[in-house]
Amino acid sequence: MYAQMVKTAGHGIKPRDRMTPQERAFQDRIDAGEKIEPKDWMPDEYRATLIRQIGQHAHSEIVGQLPEGNWITRAPTLERKAILLAKVQDEAGHGLYLYSACETLGVSRDELIAMLHAGKMKYSSIFNYPTLNWADIGAVGWLVDGAAIMNQVQLQKTSYGPYARAMVRICKEESFHQRQGFSIMMKMAAGTPAQKRMAQDALNRLWFPSLMMFGPPDKDSAHTAQSMAWKIKINTNDELRQRFVDQTVPQIDYLGLERPDPDLKWNPDKADGKGGFDYSDPDWAEFFAVLKGNGPCNTDRMKARVDAWEQGAWVRDGLSAHAAKRAARSAQQTAAQ
């Protein structure tokens, strides 16, 4: 879930009687579960919100290559190296689909990248945390991709057609990633004392940042209502966070690791008697600090992306110039014939 704190454009939900007939017809289509397609009419605010959300999601995939890429050259076996490389390559592919989905809304990939580099668009806070030992690669797959799947599964039902379809494809690959991550954790948790220590350390460090991926608590989330009315968002932050906690705690126990939060306790009264785990809130002050640029890796991550872009300018220019020359030569040939 690579879109957090997406500011919804506009000023809250417009009551039905204040909508124009066009807006009303649009809302009716959404309420009937129809997909909105690129050429359909849509409110400007809907378009702007989607650009923010899908763009942020795309940026997260690309920036998200970096923390895992950090271990590719140091992966411990040839097989683990190949799996990790393939996974990080998948993230780049997800970035591509999502930029393409975003382009259907009338903004180019280059414009989106320029906004990211200028600090006008964000990426998920999670990628501002470092990967410090090999178990982090397991924990990223297990927890971070696990949290992403929680969000992305519901987004397969999102109202904007190209986004929903991108999500279907992405979800298939993400669940594979999550299983790979868990397989690393199983090896580490059942390994030598040093490996077990790495596994516990990774879990302890990444637990709360993973909970933050769902965004601030519903009571502080100003943007949820309109996004839900538009079906850009299907579940609230707290619903998804609870679902993630409930899924993950039994996996922690299965691995034989210590729960990273002493308050993680089963509460049979939660969810109208269905039960759920109680958990401590992440440090929301830290979350907002990370969003502001003060996470452990913000400056390094942005520098890596900006450097890649700037140092690659001559390559993009060179290949475009060559393509133009070829087109000119073949036009000349055609004219000569």
Binding site: Q65, T73, K81, L85, V88, A308
Partner: peptide
């Protein structure tokens, strides 16, 4: 080649470099 992962001039090249590295790694095995 894998050192490029996440740092290529454009996403398509990033994917292609990773692909090359993966093929080479498979051949290594």
């Amino acid at each position: 080649v894998s050192e490029w992962c996440g740092h290529a001039p454009v996403i398509e090249e990033d994917i292609a470099l990773a692909n090359t590295a993966l093929d080479l790694l498979g051949q290594t095995q």
